[in-house]
Write a protein that binds this DNA or RNA. Structure first.
Lengths: 316, 316
DNA sequence: TAATTTTACATAAGTACTTATATAAATATT
DNA sequence: AATATTTATATAAGTACTTATGTAAAATTA
């Protein structure tokens, strides 16, 4: 079936290429999953730039042993993506000093947990005794065939993230995050209505003092997501609302963790049900709501928000 | 220095690619050295076609797990090089049956000793115990850095060829090869003068019966090269001439082996010296003559051949 | 000090793949 | 039998490198 494997040592070159291309393609899928605008082919150059701040084209070339045009082209791509800044050297006017941009540093932070997982997974796959290189490749390809590399990495990253994730209740110091996280996604998908700005700027007044609850998801103590349970009227009806996750941390199922936390919390309060308003535009969100048991119900005419065209409820 | 190596398991993908590309590039050099119009990227597809005679595009695709357009494009290249023939299937008109052409089979014969060497060398490099894939790659790259892969293979092939090469004296059954081998190179570099045709067609009359000697280099009993020692006048002067090696077997230093054999033979006969006529056009040949001790001397006006513009002699 | 060589980087074109798409023939479904 | 789907192959365009080549600045040599 697999002719290349049958060629043994003779086909080593083609074989190595195949494994390499598979790993590259799968790593691209991982970056895509976590919404990181990055590319596995950029990795070697990007990593060098992130290691020693301020390197030149030729220094990178010497470290990597690629050709010089390859480095130039990669630097162009990194520049196009806004990940690096290039300054002219004042002493030697031929040289150009490359370093990470602000966006580059932010991307690096996003990449690090993925790189850590890749390193770990490859190690568990390849740190084993074997009596030939081909035997090692066979073993590696067998493992990669069993379960796709991208899925393995994605799960591994999420697991690690979960271990470092906690969900905490509202405190004054988090008010800023509550506003920023919500405004960010409103700006992306709709626009900030006056009522939004009023509520988001005064969570204490509009939510907490009325008996509502706000939760924050923290990754390594850093706030990355939020959600609120807001009382509607005085008959114990609560709305699940103001859910937002920072763009850099989407793909880690942090939203789902917040959702589960709200449901558990509502149950512990003895609430009979939860309702929420959303927009059909947000297909992924609706999918998650259904997954957690929310069922579509008719939406009232006099809704707070123009963007809402769907109402759902979860009855306990 | 080598950043990629420093990245360990994380950089495995880029690492595999680098090793693969090095092996491919070096293998191309080997094919070039032996004047074989072939390409390492064609190898997987070409090998499948040579294994089972009559395959289709999609059969190759299934065996190799490349994409279908990759196979189509490779088949086009193989067709352009004249290495394969493509017939339409009579039963299923969508299918095209691919098999080796006459030239493809000839090329396969040339490729086989090289493939054998590649397999052997890679085996000696990689059949060793190690506790991780990266460790194996390090070990392989160390060996490849010490001595270029292409040179290792070229030497290995030549060594193997030498073991299967013998040099024999003229027999009637070889007369045809004497003519064919010489005419082939004459046609390539010059043209066949009437005197050439006369001598080459009658080696018995013009060389053997006059006390001359003709040698044949045989690879696995198959004639691949020839050379003659032809007496000039009656004072024991001999001319080294009619040297030719088949185009498929150039690059194996068969010419040099014939040369050494002639010199040894001349010495054993107690000859005082050897002379030869050549053309400055044949730079590689002149280089070899000098390497074996021949020194340039003035060329006479009344030479047998128009193409000769240099005379050399080796005094024992 | 002037001329030459080397160094640092950029750009153009080629290659061996990829993905996306098209077309014709065979097969399956209705 | 007509229609839809699948299969076999081809073609076009994109990508991540390569080799070949160009240009300006620095370093070396005359």
């Amino acid at each position: 079936m697999d002719a290349l494997r049958g060629y043994g040592e003779l086909g080593l070159g083609s074989r190595l290429k195949r494994v390499s291309e598979y790993l590259m393609k799968e790593t691209q899928l991982v970056y895509n999953h976590f919404n990181i605008d990055f590319d596995p082919y950029l990795f070697p150059v990007f990593k060098i730039i992130s290691n020693k701040n301020g390197v030149t084209n030729s220094e990178i070339q010497n470290s990597l042993k690629y050709t010089q045009p390859a480095i130039s082209q990669t630097l162009n791509k990194l520049k196009d993506k806004g990940l690096i800044v290039i300054k002219n050297d004042t002493l030697d006017k031929r040289k150009k000093i490359v370093s990470l941009s602000y966006k580059g540093n932010k991307t690096l932070i996003q990449l690090k947990p993925i790189w850590k997982s890749i390193d770990e997974v490859i190690k568990t796959y390849t740190l084993e005794k074997s009596s030939s290189l081909i035997e090692h490749l066979n073993s590696l390809e067998n493992k990669l065939n069993k379960k796709s590399f991208s899925n393995t990495i994605i799960e591994n990253v999420k697991m690690e993230v979960n271990q470092e994730l906690d969900i905490v209740l509202y405190e004054d110091k988090y008010a800023k995050y509550f506003y920023d996280l919500n405004v960010e996604w409103l700006k992306t998908y709709f626009y900030v209505e006056p009522y939004d700005d009023e509520v988001l700027s005064n969570p204490e007044k509009y939510i907490i003092s009325k008996g509502g609850h706000i939760f924050f998801a923290r990754l390594n103590k850093q706030v990355v997501g939020t959600v609120a349970l807001m009382p509607i009227g005085n008959d114990g009806l609560f709305e699940l609302t103001k859910m937002a996750v920072s763009p850099e941390h989407r793909g880690y199922k942090i939203g789902q963790q917040l959702m589960q936390h709200c449901i558990d919390y509502a149950k512990s309060l003895g609430l009979p049900k939860l309702i929420l308003y959303s927009s059909r535009k947000l297909e992924n969100a609706i999918y998650i709501y259904r997954k957690y048991g929310f069922i579509e119900v008719p939406v009232e005419a006099n809704c707070h928000y123009k963007r809402c065209d769907i109402k759902m409820e979860l009855v306990f």
